[in-house]
Design a protein around this nucleic acid. Sequence first.
DNA 1: TTCGTTTTGAGGTACGTACCTCATGAGCGC
DNA 2: GCGCTCATGAGGTACGTACCTCAAAACGAA
Lengths: 347, 347
Amino acid sequence: MNEIATRRRATVHDVARTAGVSLATVDRVLNARAGVRAATIERVEAAIAELGFQRDLSASLLARARDLRVTFIIPEGSNEFMASLAQAVANRAGPALADRLHLDIIRIKALDAMALAHCLDSLQPSACDCAVIVAGEDPSVLVAVDAATRRGILVVTLVSDLPGSSRRAFIGIDNTAAGRTSASLMGRFCTGHGKVGVIAGSLHLRDHRDRLEGFRQVIAAEFADIEIIGPIEGHDEHAETAAQVTTLLAQHPDLAGIYNLGAGNAGLVSALTASGRAGTIRVIAHELSEPTRRGLLSGVIDVAIDQNPDGEIRAAIGAARALALDSSAAAPIEPIEIGIFLRDNLR
Amino acid sequence: MNEIATRRRATVHDVARTAGVSLATVDRVLNARAGVRAATIERVEAAIAELGFQRDLSASLLARARDLRVTFIIPEGSNEFMASLAQAVANRAGPALADRLHLDIIRIKALDAMALAHCLDSLQPSACDCAVIVAGEDPSVLVAVDAATRRGILVVTLVSDLPGSSRRAFIGIDNTAAGRTSASLMGRFCTGHGKVGVIAGSLHLRDHRDRLEGFRQVIAAEFADIEIIGPIEGHDEHAETAAQVTTLLAQHPDLAGIYNLGAGNAGLVSALTASGRAGTIRVIAHELSEPTRRGLLSGVIDVAIDQNPDGEIRAAIGAARALALDSSAAAPIEPIEIGIFLRDNLR
DNA sequence: TTCGTTTTGAGGTACGTACCTCATGAGCGC
DNA sequence: GCGCTCATGAGGTACGTACCTCAAAACGAA
């Protein structure tokens, strides 16, 4: 038998006694309030370390006058993945309330950096402890993130990171690894066959660039007999993607595979179906959405690479909670896995 | 802007006022204590429903004299997966403490139903609110689970379920779907090639049987040109598996793939490496452990199918917490995904 | 009715932290 | 020594639930 823990947890009282200070001083240190000498802060922190003191989350949440407020800012539009992120937040809102977490969602225009920046600027610290954003890489967003941080709002990036900013955590997958994984599968599917077409949404998007780079790396290193056609840009639109795929198929009667690293999968599926070559071409796409799900079930798509929206939202909420309760802490790192789905393990 | 919630949460006081009873009565109903007429219970429950009252977890945990105690009973031995489950529990023990959760681990002899039953019998309700077990399908375990439930200990099954018992939740993957997924990948890897060897640990294990069944289903339905050799039983032992694989390779010089649905992966890797045919044969194995990780990195193994131990433990703890706080509630269902890992998306 | 039992009410304390006020201490420059 | 500021202490209340005791009320059976 393997007992893990142990005796009674240390409380603030224990910390005060050990540090030789009063409860009020410990409280000031713990909650980063002013009016404590540096030397005293050190004494208290030493006591905290010595006792292994951990703030009791239950009591801490209970004692706060207000709940923690987390605001999600999520792009709106036809992108199914963003919609499922928003849905995941909505699903968590109820249960989270019992944990004293208040979740808000704000939908803003997709790919509009100014809208995101304005939205961040409009957040009041009194109404929002933590903002979770899907950020594009834009200077105005970076400025807004830093301003929000200075106002006392914690910022967490989701899906797409904003390195160089004061964001306190990033929750998302490694898109280069996702591209490598796709190549690794595609290479094994198409050994000795030849051509693979690659479709992107836009090479201005960082995650798409990353996926493409990873895909190219592995194809070049391990599957030298495979020739990459493209990338073609479908701008994440169904109609445009369908047109591009139709052209691609016509130009390459010997095409062995297609990798769509962007959105617009409904167009991909319809074009392939119309061509009559569905099933003979190996297809890898991104995100488990309605179109890819249909594609997997009908055999048009072989594999969907996915970042689990529920998992990402759960991780984001966890990070927000941990940061809000102890803003000096590092964000907990709960790695988001790259999901690989075939018809047989659809969730 | 999309406001989700709302006004102040209802408290027990509100429930008491609405139901027209005293706080004490509400408390008796909420905590299932005796001494309340059925008609009164109904009134209180109606008020709870009307107000949408949810017990405040923070306050609830704080008010309890003792922490929630969750005991994990996990098989010991050379099985790396079980070791990583235990490790995952140990990793969570610290952080969980801040949430008033006390985690214990008991390791018992693997595949020993009597040991598990005895262990369950020895759990005292005063020292354990919830037991999480990796159960084999054995009548003695079933009896012990029901006895524990009657003593007031909640039982949750992990990895392998125990249908027909009074266990309150099951956390694990769908092993049939895992087998189907493996077949779907293997079929695409080996189109037109011919023979695929299948290795199991033991066909007495339910999860192994399920995986085999799923694998066979999909090969038969979709890849009729593939012939399944085996299954061979390696009993999850490294040495025995190595010997079986060596024989298999010698007997089938044209083998295109190997699916190991059991453990013993170190033996699989060493036999393949020794044969000189590593890399020319597609290999799918189960569980991300040291041997499979090495196999993926060296190119001996193409794909590892995994059930994320951290995710399973997290889900089990979540279920235990929810059940312990409201034992009449249904266990929260957080589906465990089937993880698919290549060298390129190793975590 | 009367006795006994069961149900209900009233009111308390406790959990550990957050946050508040007020008083007192130490330390400073002059 | 003065007055001043800043650091700290002392002690309180509040959060929402759990759990306790004791008394009062309701109910049932004789």
